[in-house]
Design a protein around this nucleic acid. Structure first.
Length: 598
RNA sequence: GGGGGCGUAGCUCAAUUGGUUAGAGUACCGGACUGUCGAUCCGGUGGUUGCGGGUUCGACCCCCGUCGCCCUCGCCA
C-alpha cells in the first residue's frame, strides 16, 4: 500500500462549490490573506485555479490538537496543506468569488513552506513597480493576471499546433547554434571552444533553415521558434521572443494567407475566446499608405485619409497651393462629430503633434450648417467650402484636419494623427479585434546613412515581376511578394513568397553590392541548395508575444512572458548577463577589452 | 548612440519649492475580538532620501558625475 502523502490534494482551490458540501477534501496553496478573530481564523488559500476560504475554529470538534495555535502563527504566502470538510456558508456567501458559497473547515493543517515577508504584496493589481517585480519574478508569477496570461498563451499556442498539425504541417526544430550574417539585426554570438576564434550566432529567425526544409521536400514546416536579436528594446520588443514560423512549398500568396487566416481565427477563439471577423481585408501596400498613411492600418475605425491635392492646388491658401506647386500633396481627415470635442487648445495640441512628426503645420476647419469655421474658413467660402466638404464626406459637426507637404511627410503625419484622434474619440476599443493583410511591399528602400539600397523586407523575398532583369531601373517602385499580417494597427507577422532560383537570388545580392565572395561565405549553402531543385515556396512568421499582449489588452510583451528582460536586456532576477571566470574565457580563446570585469 | 521621465520606510506615495524632529497609507510585530472576506480597533518596530562628489550656515530639494528602471527617436533585412 502506498503511504498517503500529508499533502495529498483532492481538490484545487478553484473548483469547490455548493455541490461539494460535506465532502472531505485536501487543498494546498499559498495563504493570500488571513483574518484573525480571537477564537476563529479565516485563511484565503490560493493556487493557480482559484481561492478558497479556510476556517479554523478553536472549538470545532474533530480538529487536530494544536491546529488553531499553528494557524494563528501563519502569514501571507506561507504554503500549507489543509485537510478538512467542505461546508456551505449559508448567509455569509462571498459573491465576489466563484468559490464564495463554500468554505473548508480545517481539521488538520500542515505547513509545507514558510514564507518570509515578501518584498511586495501579491495583489491582482500590481502596486509594486515593475523593476522589483522582475527581480522577484517568481513572486510576481503568483499574481492572477500573469498566471492568466501564461495559461491563455499556452492554450493559444496549443491551438496553433493543433490547427497546423491538422493542415499537414510538420513541427521541425532548427538549430539554435547557427551562422552569423552581417545583414539584418545584430547577432548574439556564442564562442566555439573547439574552433578558437570562431563563433556561432543565435538565430534572428529560422529563415534560411525553413527554406532549406522546403528544398528538403518537407513541404509544410512550422515551429514555435525562439528568436534572438541584439538590438535596443521597446515595450513590444525583447532580445529573445517567440514566433509562429511557417513555410509552405508550391504556393502563392493566397495559400499562405488563407492558412494563417484559418489558424488565427481558430486559435484566437480557442486561446482567448475572441472571434475574428472574416475575411481579413487584403490591401495593396500602396492602397494602405494612401488610405491609412501607414503600412499597418488599424481597421477598428474609419476616418480614412482623403486626397484633396487637386482642390488644394487651385486654392488661394498659399500653404496648400505652394505645397502642390512644389510637387507635394494635400490630404485630410474627417473626424465625425468631433467639432465640439476639440477646443482651440485641443487643436493646437494636434498641431504640435504633427509638427513633431515633420509636418509644417495643421490646417483645420469645423463644419457648421453655415459653412466652415477655423483656419481654413476664409479660403473655402461658399461653393468651395461645399466642394471640400463633399470630397471629405463631411457634415455639420465634423472636424476636418489637413496636412500639405511631400507625400512621405503627409502620410506619416496624418497616419499617426488618425490614430491619435481615433484614440481621443474612443474609436480604438481594446476589446474589438480587426485583422488585415498588406501585400506587395516595396522591394528595396534607400538607406541615407549608408547611401545605398537595402532590403525593405528580407533578402529572400521574390520580386512581383518574376522575369525582372535589372533591379537598378525604377528601384524605388519595385514591389516584392512580401506581406504583413496586421491586427488593430500592430504588425503581428511578416512573410513573403521566396526566390527559389539561385541566379535570381544572386542577382539581388549583386544589386545590393554584396560581393560574390560574401554571398558564398554567408549564403552559399542556400544558393547551392537551389541548384539541386528548389520548389517555389513562401511563408510567414508571427510574433506570439505580441498576439497574446494584444488579445489580453496588456501594456507590453513583458506582461505575457514568464521571465522577461529589462530595456537594457538584463535579467534582474538571474542577474544575467554576468562576468565569467578567466579560465572559462581562456578555454574559449576570448579576451575582453573591458578593464574592470563586472 | 540621442531625447524625456522616475529613484524618499519592506511596498505605494507625501514633505508648504533650500530651513532645523523626513510624514501618511499599507505590510510587518504585539494586544483585543467567534463570521470575517483588501476585517476592525489599540499600540509598536521600521529611513545611508539609488550611489559618489560639490555649492551652502543649512540639501530629499540646487549643480556635476554615476548606476538602475520606464517611455521614445535612431536601430530592429
Amino acid at each position: 500500500m502506498t503511504k498517503r502523502s500529508p499533502w495529498q490534494r483532492t481538490h484545487t482551490c478553484g473548483e469547490l462549490g455548493l455541490p461539494d458540501e460535506g465532502k472531505d477534501t485536501g487543498v494546498n496553496g499559498w495563504i493570500e490573506n488571513h483574518r484573525h478573530h480571537g477564537q476563529i481564523v479565516f485563511l484565503d488559500l490560493r493556487d493557480r485555479y482559484g481561492v478558497t476560504q479556510v476556517v479554523v475554529d478553536q472549538d470545532a470538534a474533530g480538529t487536530a490538537p494544536g491546529t488553531f495555535e499553528l494557524v494563528r502563527r501563519l502569514g501571507a504566502e506561507d504554503v500549507i496543506s489543509v485537510a478538512g470538510r467542505v461546508r456551505a456558508r449559508g448567509s455569509n456567501v462571498n459573491k465576489n468569488r466563484s468559490t464564495g458559497e463554500i468554505e473548508v473547515v480545517a481539521l488538520a493543517v500542515t505547513v509545507l513552506g514558510e514564507a518570509e515577508t515578501p518584498p511586495f504584496e501579491i495583489l491582482d493589481k500590481a502596486e509594486a513597480n515593475e523593476e522589483l517585480r522582475m527581480q522577484y519574478r517568481y513572486l510576481d508569477l503568483r499574481r492572477r493576471p500573469l498566471q492568466e496570461a501564461l495559461m491563455k498563451r499556452a492554450r493559444f499556442v496549443t491551438a496553433v499546433r493543433n490547427y497546423l498539425q491538422g493542415q499537414r504541417f510538420i513541427d521541425i526544430e532548427t538549430p539554435i547554434l547557427t551562422k552569423s550574417t552581417p545583414e539584418g539585426a545584430r547577432d548574439y554570438l556564442v564562442p566555439s571552444r573547439v574552433h578558437p576564434g570562431k563563433f556561432f550566432a543565435l538565430p534572428q529567425s529560422p529563415q534560411i533553415f525553413k527554406q532549406l526544409c522546403m528544398v528538403g521536400g518537407l513541404d509544410r514546416y512550422y515551429q514555435i521558434a525562439r528568436c534572438f536579436r541584439d538590438e535596443d528594446l521597446r515595450a513590444d520588443r525583447q532580445p529573445e521572443f517567440t514566433q509562429i514560423d511557417l513555410e509552405m512549398a508550391f504556393v502563392e500568396e493566397h495559400d499562405v494567407l488563407d492558412v494563417v487566416e484559418g489558424m488565427m481565427v481558430h486559435s484566437m477563439r480557442e486561446g482567448f475566446g475572441i472571434d475574428l471577423p472574416q475575411p481579413f481585408p487584403r490591401f495593396d501596400f500602396a492602397e494602405a499608405m494612401d488610405k491609412y498613411g501607414c503600412d499597418k492600418p488599424d481597421l477598428r475605425f474609419g476616418m480614412l485619409l482623403v486626397d484633396c491635392t487637386d482642390l488644394a492646388g487651385r486654392s488661394d491658401f498659399k500653404v496648400f497651393a505652394g505645397a502642390v506647386a512644389a510637387g507635394g500633396i494635400v490630404k485630410g481627415l474627417c473626424a465625425e462629430g468631433a467639432a465640439d470635442k476639440y477646443s482651440r487648445k485641443g487643436i493646437d495640441e494636434l498641431t504640435a503633434f504633427v509638427t513633431g512628426l515633420g509636418a509644417r503645420g495643421l490646417a483645420w476647419a469645423k463644419v457648421t450648417a453655415a459653412g466652415l469655421e477655423g483656419s481654413l474658413a476664409k479660403f473655402y467660402e461658399g461653393d468651395k467650402g461645399r466642394e471640400l466638404c463633399a470630397r471629405m464626406g463631411a457634415k455639420p459637426g465634423d472636424l476636418l484636419l489637413f496636412v500639405a507637404d511631400e507625400q512621405k511627410v503627409v502620410h506619416r503625419a496624418l497616419g499617426d494623427l488618425r490614430l491619435k484622434v481615433g484614440s481621443q474619440l474612443g474609436l480604438r476599443d481594446p476589446k474589438v479585434f480587426r485583422c488585415c493583410w498588406v501585400l506587395n511591399f516595396p522591394m528595396f528602400e534607400w538607406n541615407d546613412e549608408k547611401a545605398r539600397w537595402q532590403f525593405a523586407h528580407n533578402p529572400f523575398s521574390a520580386p512581383v515581376d518574376w522575369s525582372i532583369q535589372d533591379f537598378s531601373v525604377d528601384t524605388a517602385n519595385l514591389r516584392s511578394r512580401a506581406y504583413d499580417f496586421v491586427m488593430n494597427g500592430w504588425e503581428l507577422g511578416s512573410g513573403s513568397i521566396r526566390i527559389h532560383r539561385p541566379e535570381l537570388q544572386a542577382k539581388v545580392f549583386d544589386f545590393l553590392g554584396i560581393g560574390k565572395e560574401q554571398q558564398r561565405a554567408n549564403f552559399g549553402f542556400l544558393l547551392d541548395a537551389y541548384r539541386y531543385g528548389g520548389p517555389p515556396h513562401g511563408g510567414i512568421a508571427l510574433g506570439v508575444d505580441r498576439v497574446v499582449t494584444l488579445a489580453l489588452g496588456r501594456e507590453g510583451i513583458r506582461d505575457v512572458i514568464a521571465f522577461p528582460k529589462t530595456a537594457m536586456a538584463f535579467d534582474l532576477m538571474a542577474e544575467a548577463p554576468s562576468p565569467v571566470g578567466d579560465e572559462q574565457l581562456k578555454e574559449l580563446s576570448i579576451a575582453t577589452t573591458v578593464k574592470k570585469p563586472g
